[in-house]
Design a protein around this nucleic acid. Structure first.
Lengths: 204, 204
DNA sequence: GATCTATTCGGACCCTAGTCCGCTATCAGC
DNA sequence: GCTGATAGCGGACTAGGGTCCGAATAGATC
């Protein structure tokens, strides 16, 4: 497994003026590989930062310098797939990407997001669980929000698209989806149907 | 300020068989008064459990024995008002209580919930920020969910009322509302209008 | 290759939530 | 009142996240 530089998720952000030093890059890679392995082996909530540092063969200071905090590290682990997702809904094929009818794109967006949670929900829940409100201020939420709001603006020209975007994205928060899937035992398909019904209801 | 026994929020829960011992009741009261005072003075995120214990004149063990954890203490602080809220929407006057048209009741529910967040949002955010998903498993969410789902079931007989309840309550999560109010600067009235529009959209 | 500076490294340290268990106070029954 | 079982108390202790700063290293410049 190989990881590239940058821990951000919004697309074409300017790279740092000076490239990262060789030892720093080596360590970043070692840390992310170790973290990914430990998380896969033991589950995200049974991995401490000390263990990650130990497994990567670096000191704790290095770990925190690179990733800021635990949440930062987890987000970095999710970053690759998130970039793919963003690429798909911004420039990818319909129905997720441009070209399909707006309502179809929204449906596809939700279904894709639910699939992603199905795949790495635990990690996402933990990564969202930082300081209260932090996830909402982060790039990932911002990108999703901007995308959904833009589509809603097309779909319902008079409506408060920003508010509706938050409302819709609320149903796709990993915490909520995991609760519905595990605690309530709702099948994935039911959530997809519900999402579609929500959009149908709003656009009718 | 005086606080009564019990830390739960769902309505007529059976009281413990044997009433709490006198010293325990005294300590509970001292702790809650101290906690309420410290939170009011310094803001909820600047109060540690040690400080609360110190200010209440009890040991740390007592604090944790009574309230389980930090979240438990904060929830207990919110409990009185939450009980009032539940009383209002279950047995109170219309439009919040029974008697008004279902849609009106839902609108009133959301507006009341938003007002509550306006009043003690910080505390609520912090109290919701426990282990991921914990808030959803708690009595308070359960009670709100049951209420909203029941109303939705009446309003839209064919729909997936449980799913819709989660979707609607997502917009009333303290974390989201605080984000909209503070980070995005949305006025409270805009959130109330948005809530109403959401319900109009769904019931149309 | 020597030198110099900015960047990075790493582990000792701090803070706070939460646990544990021997000691103490309460109160029901006598 | 006395007494014994039971519930409650409290502070020393642990664990894990996050900080700090002197030491070490990369890599640009000469």
């Amino acid at each position: 497994m190989g990881f590239t530089q940058h821990g951000l998720a919004l697309l074409p952000l300017l790279e740092p003026a000076r490239p990262e030093r060789a030892d720093a890059a080596r360590n970043r890679n070692a840390i992310m590989c170790a973290a990914a392995r430990l998380v896969a082996e033991r589950g995200v909530d049974c991995v401490t930062m000390d263990e990650v540092a130990g497994a990567a063969g670096v000191g704790k200071g290095t770990l925190f310098r690179r990733f800021g905090d635990r949440i930062g590290l987890l987000r970095a682990l999710l970053d690759e797939r998130e970039k793919d997702f963003q690429e798909e809904f911004i420039r990818g094929e319909p129905p997720l990407g441009p070209g399909a009818p707006v309502c179809e794109r929204l449906i596809a967006f939700g279904e894709r997001a639910l699939d992603e949670i199905e795949l790495q929900g635990d990690l996402m829940v933990e990564a969202e669980a930082g300081a209260p409100g932090e996830r909402l201020l982060h790039n990932v939420y911002g990108a999703h929000r901007a995308h959904v709001a833009a589509l809603v603006r097309e779909l319902l020209p008079g409506a408060d698209s920003d508010y509706i975007a938050d409302a819709l994205l609320g149903t796709l928060a990993a915490e909520v989806v995991i609760y519905q899937r595990r605690a309530l035992g709702m099948p994935l398909q039911r959530l997809k149907d519900g999402w579609r019904a929500l959009l149908d209801g709003l656009s009718r």
